[in-house]
Write a protein that binds this DNA or RNA. Sequence first.
RNA 1: GCCGGCAUAGCUCAGCGGUAGAGCAACUGAUUCGUAAUCAGUAGGUCCACAGUUCGAUUCUGUGUGCCGGCACCA
Length: 649
Amino acid sequence: MPAITLPDGSVRQFDAPVTGTTVAAAIGPGLARAALAMKVDGKLVDLAWEIAADASVVFVTRKDPEALELIRHDAAHVLAEAVQELFPGTQVTIGPSIENGFYYDFARDVPFTPEDFSAIESKMREIVGRASPFVRQVMDRDEAIHFFQEKGEKYKAQLIQDLPRSEPISLYTQGEWVDLCRGPHLRTTADVGSAFKLMKVAGAYWRGDHRNAMLSRVYGTAWRDQKELDAHLHQLEEAERRDHRRIGKDMGLFHIQEEAVGSVFWHPKGWKLYRTAEDYMRRRLDAAGYQEVRTPQLLDHDLWVRSGHWENYRDNMFFAEVADDKKTLAVKPMNCPCHVLIFRQGLRSYRELPLRMAEFGACHRYEPSGALHGIMRVRSFVQDDAHIFCSEDQIAPETVAFVALLSSIYRDFGFESFHVKLADRPEKRVGSDAVWDQAEGALREACATAGVDYTLNPGEGAFYGPKLEFVLRDAIGRDWQCGTLQVDFNTPGRLDAEYVGEDGARHTPVMLHRAILGSFERFLGILIENYAGRFPLWLAPEKVVVATIVSDADEYARDAVAAFQAAGLTAKADLSNQKINAKVREHSLAHVPVIAVVGRKEAENGTVALRRLGSQAQEIVPLAEAVARLAREATPPDLRVSTGTTIAA
RNA sequence: GCCGGCAUAGCUCAGCGGUAGAGCAACUGAUUCGUAAUCAGUAGGUCCACAGUUCGAUUCUGUGUGCCGGCACCA
């Protein structure tokens, strides 16, 4: 007879197998009301699950994280029921809970549109109101297939067909409606609550494969209560407010147009930002022992055949031809082969290794039209690329040095945390399995040496080698993959790179492909969104606007601008015939970090009234002090001299 | 590339089978003002492109292009 151990350590004895409902009721009416599901020996199950043997039980209530996932999953079921009530003939497929909500994929001749939402949502609320219990039932496999085929649900039948034989087939019924589902579920549809909202429709391939039928996916968001839902909707607005395409337009940083799809026209202010980032990166790479190079855009396609790109990457490459030359040229999608060609000039010695070759390399890739996204995903971009030619035993120390450099650079750009994924051999690849074993082993070992914790990203490596992906988190919690470190035992050999070792024999170097920002375009897009356009002073393309209150201060304002500019601060005067309120508003909306207001008083006293973006406070300081202080603040982080340190003799 | 939506003034958007409107921005004038919109006036359009239907198309239909949201892709 089951003895139930509760989280507080107490034990309850029962005479016969019991359900969670019974146990909760035995503990108290409060818990009986609050318990939505339970964990039996750590496994999440329905409250109606029967416990026959001794077990530890933890009840899940609305405030537990597990509850949220159940709410979302159940909301998906409610959505599916609502859709099938409203649109008979629609087939159901799958409907999982996801981050922030749920979706359900439907097979239907006419895809859903957002206009259908209000009817579906009303029906969903009606179903929630019915408080139909979720009832679990286990069915024989063939019977279940037959059951769904009878109902005309061929996708469901297919799902069961493909489940492993060992898997029990469970169905859940809510009222009249039945779905194939592993579970678990809440008690009744009422537990879903009312804090849900349908968000968007989208096409999605059956089983995520583009060769399959396109289904109509309905996305929803669901939360424990209205407050959480509101917070989420607010968060979405916040993300939209930060959209780099919006801010790029508002601040006049860049534009993209039809004549150059997927390529960026950088405007003066945007290019200033770009150059600030590039100059910074160049200094960091110089200091870290990299040698910068520059290589051609167009190269004979034969090179790409040898490198393996022709075979594995041709569909994503641009090609160029001219009338009186039979050669086909490829626009480089990567810089690596070019760097190998430089490496191959002359005889290399082991003494030159590790040889770190860097290039801000302009690459072109024919990305699918649907993948393009502002400046984040483009067809023409510049990588902060470098290749480290080294011996096998230099992989680990180079990885350690790289991770240190990358962390420091991310920190300087305002990103405090990142995580790492290790992507191993993909299906489409070059090189033997033995070489891949070696490369993957070397990379894992390097991670251990560098003290890097990583999660596995199976099958996602480059075609020439496994890679580490460095994913950073922005100010509103979104993740972006930027940095990468790839171990390549293939390309150097394919392109005949070699060096003379200590033993006098010729060896093939290992090549580490690495990038920190990834591409400038993407990284700057991320920076824009991370800061919502409110850049720290060193990055801000326009640092100071001197705004006058009266025209009597014009002369002084010009002098002030000159003083800021002399200190290297991009500054301009706003002498326009507008009220100071309007000027403050205009420049605040343009994300200018510092507004220096000058009126009669300031002109007389040689001061400026500083107002920082995002604050209403003003500080009146002598012009010279303002210049010195802002110039110090605008110094890039790598050039700042920390005060108070003395250099030891 | 696939599914769906969208394309009208510099921007945000309204509108309609009889060839176009608002707010903001711009420009002109007045106003000299103390920290997120001073007032008045003026100008501004191949209604994405091409084809079709129609007496007549910015509007309806088709095709193309681009953008947006997903999916697939991201070596």
